[in-house]
Amino acid sequence: MNEDKTTHFGYQEVPVAEKARHVGSVFDSVADRYDLMNDLMSAGMHRLWKRRAIAQAMLSKGQDVLDLAGGTGDLARLALDKVGDDGHVVLSDINAAMLQRGRDRFINEGIDSQASYVRCDAEFLPFPDGSFDRVTIGFGLRNVTNKDRALAEMRRVLRPGGRAIILEFSHVQVAALRPFYDLYSFRVMPIMGKLIVDDPDSYRYLAESIRVHPDAQTLSNMMENAGFEDCGYNLLTAGVVAIHHGWVY
């Protein structure tokens, strides 16, 4: 992608250099009630999806984990339980408001000493090569402007034997369900966004961003092109979400 071209922001086309700002405004708007909206929109299913993702990370005691686009810290919190006192988790996000929510949560739970907090862009990670045993990202890759570059960075910071886990919305596989999923996404979610956070546009963007995100097989191919090996994915909830994995050898 040339930097003078445009990219998707939902169904809109915006200059590449401006997408991060647009995405940032979305999460600034919803940060205070982000967790509540996740529970309501998914009927709590997002918690099950995240637990499945961490299970597929195959974490062990003492490992170092980088959680990208970690927001309020759901995946990082689950990872901390797996790596134990001798392990370490870096909670990172490009959005300061979201990262602050995650840090506050860890402080309130008394586990902040086991974690670090880094505000960074997934496309330009401020870590040396081979810094981590695992990299996770949950529902964040579709908001990244240059996904290929972000995948390459994830590959770069993993040690040999490391694994990347990507939890992301995908494409519904059951044709009969698609009209109902579209109705819920484009009509119900913006109404909920209006009622709960007074921001229907951010949740309309959410629905649109899912539709323009690569399908599961395309994303798996992108991981292979970035240098990951033994890539694969599992579709959950009729394909609403996918958990992708790739190894570094």
Rank of each mutant, 00 (worst) to 15 (best):
M1P: 12
N2C: 15
T6F: 12
T6R: 06
T6H: 06
T7C: 11
G10K: 02
P15L: 02
A17V: 15
E18Y: 10
E18G: 12
H22V: 06
S25P: 01
V26C: 14
F27T: 14
D28M: 05
S29D: 14
S29P: 05
S29L: 06
V30D: 12
D32C: 10
D35A: 14
M37G: 00
M37K: 10
N38V: 06
D39G: 11
D39K: 03
L40A: 14
M41Q: 06
M41G: 02
S42N: 13
S42L: 08
M45D: 09
M45I: 13
R47E: 04
W49E: 03
W49H: 05
K50G: 01
R51F: 01
R52H: 05
I54D: 02
A57Q: 00
L59T: 00
L59Y: 06
S60F: 14
K61V: 15
V65A: 02
V65I: 11
L66M: 07
L68H: 04
A69L: 07
G71L: 05
T72N: 10
G73W: 04
D74H: 03
A76G: 09
A76T: 06
R77T: 14
L78N: 01
A79R: 03
D81G: 15
D81V: 07
V83W: 08
V83T: 01
H88E: 15
I94F: 11
I94R: 01
N95D: 09
N95K: 01
A96M: 07
A97V: 05
L99I: 08
Q100H: 04
G102Q: 02
D104Y: 14
R105F: 00
I107P: 05
N108L: 10
N108S: 12
A115W: 01
Y117F: 11
Y117H: 03
V118H: 02
R119A: 08
C120F: 03
D121E: 05
D121S: 11
F124Q: 12
P128T: 10
D133T: 10
R134E: 08
V135I: 15
T136I: 04
T136N: 07
I137R: 08
G138W: 06
G138D: 02
R142Y: 10
D148S: 15
A150S: 11
E153D: 03
R155H: 11
R156A: 06
R156G: 01
L158R: 02
P160N: 14
G161V: 00
R163S: 09
A164F: 12
I165Y: 03
S170P: 12
S170Q: 01
H171F: 13
L177N: 13
L177T: 00
Y181K: 11
L183H: 09
L183I: 04
R187K: 07
R187S: 09
P190A: 13
V197G: 10
D198K: 07
D198W: 15
S202H: 04
Y203L: 13
Y205R: 00
A207L: 03
V212H: 05
V212F: 05
H213T: 00
N221D: 15
N221C: 06
A226F: 03
F228V: 10
D230P: 07
C231L: 15
Y233S: 11
N234C: 12
T237L: 02
A238H: 14
V241H: 04
V241Q: 00
I243S: 04
G246F: 12
Y249P: 04
